[in-house]
Simulated scan of single mutants.
Amino acid sequence: MTTRRGFLAGLAAAASFPRPTWADAGSPAYLAAAQVPDGSYRLFGLTAAGERLFDLPLPDRGHAAAAHPTRPEAVAFARRPGTFALVIDCATGTEKARLESPEGRHFYGHGAFSSDGHTLFTPENDYEAGQGVIGVWDTRADYTRIDEFPSGGVGPHDARLMPDHETLVVANGGIDTHPDSGRTKLNIPLMEPNLTYVTLDGRILEQVELDRALHKNSIRHLAVSPDGQVAFAMQWQGDVADNPPLVGLHRRGEAARLLIAPDEAHRRMEGYAGSVALSGGVVAITSPRGGLAQRFDAETGAFLGQHASADVCGVSAAGTGFALTTGTGLVEGIDADRTAWQARHDCRWDNHLVAI
């Protein structure tokens, strides 16, 4: 029979047992999904110089991953309109859990953890209602789904935790889709993209919409600075000749600011920003269609320059500059418009490079 003293001793022993950290997985700086030469898909852990630390199998094409804030654990999401996400122990390479979206829902390829790592939030499509929801999963109970709440719009593609640790910012892209139609966009004339700030229990605090003339500019991806500035990347669903801005900045309680490169540089983006990152007061966006990464001053909005790289899409902060990934297998660091380092891999990187 267990005594009270023995029970307490067991608790003390459990508490003293070292918990796994990202160091147990080699202390990766980034996560990225990729397709490898045999046609299969992998989730890679990369060093700060773009070198491979590990690669783990995925059952299908990935999009982005969410990194647990303390444990060496990643949630790898299927590409929209996927219905699965895998929880991978990056130290052992084992699958810890598999998330399946509820009936009538699909994931958008992104997710965000609470600051303590106890909760995962997943942007999802309620495709019968044509509305976005945020799924809520308890990570301490094998990622059991415990709740959901409205995202504040249609097509919530991305969500990020704000520095207050109490708020999510959601990129409601405005595009309605349905699995019966694959990736077909069903409501382009009626799109209403927005940024929504919502508490972790689902209370909407603030919403920001674009001017009506820009209602086809789908807000897709997000980056958040430590002081709460939000950068958002957009993808134009109208005539590419219209050349609308592709990146915006926002602070709570203020109007959004839209940034645009000089004419020729902007036209080369072909109406598509694939990813966005903030680093040291600079915001960067990428365009795989244009083969460019462009940089802007995050305070003044001034265009700072661009870096050409074929099929570039993934971007993340890297020291005073940025790290980029491409569909040609390149990982490179840029400081200003100078290439600081490069690493090449025999794979096709998917859309995003996730900093840990």
Results as ranks from 00 to 15, higher is better:
4 R>A: 15
254 E>W: 09
179 P>S: 11
165 H>S: 14
253 G>F: 01
117 G>P: 00
122 T>D: 09
112 A>S: 07
260 I>H: 09
165 H>L: 13
192 E>T: 11
39 G>P: 02
264 E>W: 14
269 M>F: 13
52 R>S: 12
169 V>L: 09
288 P>T: 11
111 G>T: 02
327 G>I: 10
131 Q>N: 12
2 T>W: 13
337 D>K: 10
284 A>V: 09
264 E>H: 15
187 N>H: 05
2 T>M: 15
12 A>E: 01
88 I>G: 03
303 F>P: 07
97 A>E: 10
227 D>M: 06
26 G>K: 10
278 L>M: 10
349 W>Y: 05
318 A>R: 03
280 G>K: 04
143 Y>W: 07
340 A>W: 12
20 P>T: 04
341 W>N: 04
335 D>N: 15
78 A>F: 10
42 R>Q: 12
192 E>M: 11
180 D>C: 11
246 L>N: 08
72 P>N: 09
280 G>R: 01
22 W>E: 02
311 D>S: 11
36 V>M: 00
113 F>V: 00
84 F>D: 15
287 S>G: 13
109 G>C: 03
246 L>Q: 07
231 A>L: 09
137 W>P: 07
83 T>W: 15
297 D>R: 13
112 A>I: 10
156 P>Y: 02
328 T>K: 11
333 G>T: 01
49 A>D: 14
93 G>Q: 04
123 P>R: 03
1 M>P: 13
142 D>P: 04
123 P>T: 02
261 A>L: 03
145 R>E: 14
38 D>Q: 02
272 Y>I: 00
121 F>S: 05
353 L>K: 00
147 D>L: 03
215 H>K: 14
356 I>G: 05
51 E>L: 10
226 P>K: 00
190 L>E: 15
83 T>I: 15
113 F>M: 00
142 D>Q: 08
290 G>Y: 03
199 T>F: 03
89 D>N: 06
276 V>D: 12
36 V>I: 13
141 A>I: 00
282 V>I: 14
150 P>L: 08
92 T>Q: 14
253 G>I: 03
152 G>L: 08
226 P>A: 01
76 A>P: 12
121 F>N: 01
297 D>F: 08
129 A>P: 14
276 V>S: 13
184 T>R: 14
271 G>I: 12
345 H>P: 00
139 T>C: 02
110 H>I: 00
256 A>M: 09
247 V>M: 01
147 D>C: 09
17 F>K: 15
34 A>N: 10
16 S>W: 06
10 G>R: 12
213 A>E: 13
273 A>E: 11
296 F>C: 04
280 G>C: 09
121 F>D: 04
179 P>F: 08
194 N>D: 03
270 E>F: 13
285 I>H: 05
307 H>C: 11
55 D>R: 03
60 D>H: 08
116 D>T: 04
257 R>E: 12
246 L>W: 07
143 Y>L: 02
272 Y>N: 02
294 Q>I: 05
65 A>K: 12
294 Q>S: 12
221 H>Y: 07
351 N>A: 11
75 V>W: 03
319 G>A: 00
234 M>S: 01
350 D>I: 12
252 R>C: 02
49 A>L: 14
273 A>S: 06
274 G>Q: 08
315 V>L: 13
25 A>N: 02
47 T>M: 06
235 Q>Y: 00
258 L>C: 10
77 F>Q: 06
336 A>E: 14
32 A>R: 02
7 F>I: 08
124 E>M: 06
